[in-house]
Computed example of a mutant assay.
Amino acid sequence: MFASHRMIMFFGFDMPGGAASFPLVYFIANIIQEVYGYKRIRQLLWVIIITQIAILCMSLITLYFLPAQEIPMPIYNILHRVSPNMTHDQMYSIYSGLYNFILGQNIRNVIVNLFAIFLGLFANAYIFGHLKKMTNGKLLWFRTIGATCIGEFVFTLIFVLGAFWGQFHNMTLMH
C-alpha cells in the first residue's frame, strides 16, 4: 500500500508501485490456504483488516495534531537551497502542507485498501478453493495462478479506481 503512492513504469505501462508485490502476497495466501485451510486464510484476512484500521487511526491522530515548529534538517536544507530567502514560517507552511498531502493520501488509500483487500483476497480464496474441488486437489500451479489472477484483478480494479480516481488522467487509470 505504501509503495502505491509512486507510479512506476512496468513493462511499458504506468502503474502503482505496489503492483509488483501483489502477486507475491496472493501466492503466499494461496500457500497458506493450501497448507492450513480456508479458516486460517479468513483469520489472516481479519488480521490484515485490523492492522489497516490501526494504520488509519494512527494517520488520523497524527494529522489532527499540528507538527512541531522544528523542521527536519533534510527538508530544511532542500527548501533553503530552493529559496535561500524563505522565512521559517514559509518553510513551515510548505512542510506542513506536504506532510498533510502525503498522509492525507495515505488515509484515502487505507480506506480503499480495506475494501480492496477484503474483496480481492476473498475472491482469491474462493476461486482457489473452488478450483481445488474441480481438480481433486491436483494442479497446484493452475489453482495458484488462476486464483491469483482473479483475486489480483479484483483488488487492482477496486484499489486503482478508488485511490487514483480524479488524480490521474482516465487513460492512465485504464492502463
Rank of each mutant, 00 (worst) to 15 (best):
35 V>R: 14
60 L>C: 11
173 L>F: 06
168 F>L: 12
48 I>K: 03
174 M>R: 11
61 I>S: 00
49 I>Y: 05
123 A>F: 01
102 I>W: 07
131 L>D: 12
154 V>S: 04
61 I>Q: 03
96 S>E: 11
84 P>G: 09
52 Q>M: 07
122 F>V: 12
48 I>G: 09
46 W>V: 02
1 M>Q: 08
145 I>Q: 07
125 A>L: 05
62 T>F: 03
140 L>S: 02
165 W>A: 06
160 V>P: 03
69 Q>D: 14
147 A>T: 00
139 L>H: 09
19 A>S: 09
128 F>R: 14
146 G>H: 02
40 R>V: 13
133 K>T: 06
141 W>C: 00
41 I>G: 08
136 N>S: 14
38 Y>A: 14
2 F>V: 04
27 F>W: 15
44 L>W: 06
119 L>G: 08
111 I>V: 05
24 L>F: 14
115 F>T: 13
6 R>V: 09
58 M>C: 02
150 I>D: 00
128 F>C: 06
140 L>C: 04
150 I>F: 12
40 R>N: 07
123 A>Y: 06
148 T>L: 06
70 E>Q: 06
147 A>Y: 03
100 N>Y: 06
152 E>G: 05
45 L>I: 02
48 I>S: 10
138 K>N: 12
21 S>N: 10
16 P>N: 06
36 Y>P: 01
156 T>K: 08
154 V>R: 01
138 K>L: 03
95 Y>Q: 08
13 F>I: 08
113 N>V: 05
108 R>P: 03
51 T>D: 12
43 Q>K: 15
141 W>T: 04
102 I>Q: 07
70 E>H: 02
100 N>E: 15
96 S>C: 05
92 Y>H: 14
47 V>N: 04
104 G>Y: 00
74 P>R: 02
75 I>V: 14
3 A>F: 11
127 I>Y: 08
122 F>H: 13
